[in-house]
């Protein structure tokens, strides 16, 4: 399983970014390879419009099975994400990525 997180940093200890479209980083954990990779999304700050679809497009290119985020994607981003089979879990906005992962493993996060 490949699990993506919206985060404010590149480490397991980094805080989650509650925003989807304007998240600073996308952190992705590949459980099979036990590998943590990240995508620097900070250039999104310069986008006045359409941050949601743009980040969703980037996420789809990374092909995660699961997305863990905070508030949840908005309408435009959701319609992009619907094109993939990615399962979305929300409500992890105030945790570290590690805590969010643990919560997901314990089925404590809400499906979007």
């Amino acid at each position: 399983m490949k699990i993506a997180f919206t985060t404010k940093g590149t480490e397991w200890d980094s805080m989650m970014d509650p925003r989807f479209g304007r998240t600073e980083f996308i952190l992705m954990f590949d459980e099979e390879k036990d590998e943590l990779v990240n995508f620097d999304n900070r250039s999104i700050e310069g986008e006045a419009h359409g941050a949601g679809p743009k980040t969703a497009q980037q996420l789809l290119e990374m092909k995660p099975d699961v997305l863990i985020t905070g508030n949840g994607p908005g309408g435009n981003a959701s319609s992009v994400l619907e094109q993939s089979g990615t399962k979305i879990f929300v409500g992890a906005g105030q945790m570290t990525a590690k805590k969010a992962y643990d919560a997901y493993k314990k089925n404590e996060l809400k499906a979007f």
């Binding site: 419009h49 359409g50 679809p53 497009q57 789809l60 435009n76």
Partner: peptide, 19 residues
């Protein structure tokens, strides 16, 4: 597109009329 109103996915183009 300066407004991310047209997004290319793997097998399709999505258009967001409100953007």
């Amino acid at each position: 597109c300066n407004f991310n109103a047209v997004i290319k996915l793997e097998k399709q183009i999505m258009v967001f009329p409100d953007l």
